[in-house]
């Protein structure tokens, strides 16, 4: 595998992790997931309906994409820990996207509950990928308690506002010793490319694809955006200059 993403010793060929939320239909979701090239996709845990289907479970099984259960909707460490334990039981994976938010309006991570839950889950043998604020101090703390990846937001979930604090994301990337996954806020392919150019190891997105007018096409765009950004980050961009610098030598009539 060329330039794999490695999280907790597991290799992925794709640096795009897709979420399954927001899709209009299971068919549209399946097409988008395949077009994105993702190998890992998030699912939420909710009460099972009596006589309900197992649609998303069957879809992942069929497509060979691994589920990454999340704790979306949890407001406390206790709630997140129980949800993670149930996800491990239901999906037979000890990987968890840890999400503990403070309120419905911002869906921003609650730092205190997040660190508490991360510590408990790491102790219980989970591979914790923590959804976090774009805060370098908090990202370091999550790394210290044993998270396998830190996943700072670009902007609040579902806003499509892109990366509001590029400097903070760059700082998080520059000193992290675990993979950094830009999670939340991506609106279009250039946002995904920018995340990778800033030094992120991967991008996680859902709404930007599933709520696009043409999810399958946007999924392909995101895939290309992530790949382009990764190549650019490795290629080493030119320094920014104040004044122009000609790329052609001299003038034709001199």
């Amino acid at each position: 595998m060329d330039d794999p993403l490695v999280i907790a010793g597991r290799e992925f060929g794709s640096r795009l992790i897709m979420g399954t939320g927001g899709a209009a239909s299971m068919t549209a979701l399946e097409q988008a997931l395949i077009a994105s090239g993702t190998e890992l996709t998030t699912v939420a845990m909710r009460r099972a309906d009596a006589g309900g289907g197992t649609g998303v479970f069957d879809l992942l099984h069929r497509s060979g994409i691994d589920p990454l259960p999340n704790t979306a909707g949890c407001r406390s460490a206790a709630e997140a820990v129980l949800t993670a334990q149930l996800a491990r039981e239901a999906l037979a994976t000890n990987w968890i996207k840890l999400e503990v938010v403070v309120d419905e309006q911002t869906l921003l991570p609650d730092p205190v509950e997040l660190v508490d839950a991360a510590e408990q889950l790491v102790d219980q043998g989970f591979v914790v990928l923590a959804y976090t604020n774009d805060d370098p101090a908090l990202a370091s703390k999550l790394e210290q308690v044993g998270c396998a990846a830190v996943m700072p937001l670009g902007s609040p979930i579902g806003t499509g506002l892109g990366i509001r604090n590029t400097h903070n994301i760059e700082m998080i990337c520059s000193r992290a010793t675990v993979p950094v996954v830009l999670d939340a806020g991506i609106g279009t392919a250039s946002d995904a490319a920018l995340a990778m150019e800033l030094g992120c190891d991967a991008v996680l997105l859902a709404s930007a694809v599933t709520r696009a007018s043409d999810p399958e096409r946007m999924a392909a765009a995101m895939r290309s955006g992530v790949e382009a950004g990764r190549l650019a980050a490795q290629a080493g961009r030119i320094p920014r200059r104040y004044w122009a610098q000609a790329s052609s030598p001299g003038r034709p009539l001199e």
């Binding site: 979420g19 399954t20 939320g21 927001g22 899709a23 979701l29 998030t42 699912v43 939420a44 845990m45 909710r46 009460r47 099972a48 309900g52 197992t54 649609g55 998303v56 479970f57 589920p67 990454l68 259960p69 999340n70 979306a72 949800t83 149930l86 996800a87 239901a90 999906l91 996207k97 999400e99 859902a206």
Partner: peptide, 10 residues
């Protein structure tokens, strides 16, 4: 008793 399953999300 709580019975949970995976659904679209995240």
């Amino acid at each position: 008793v709580e019975v949970l399953t995976a659904v679209q999300g995240g």
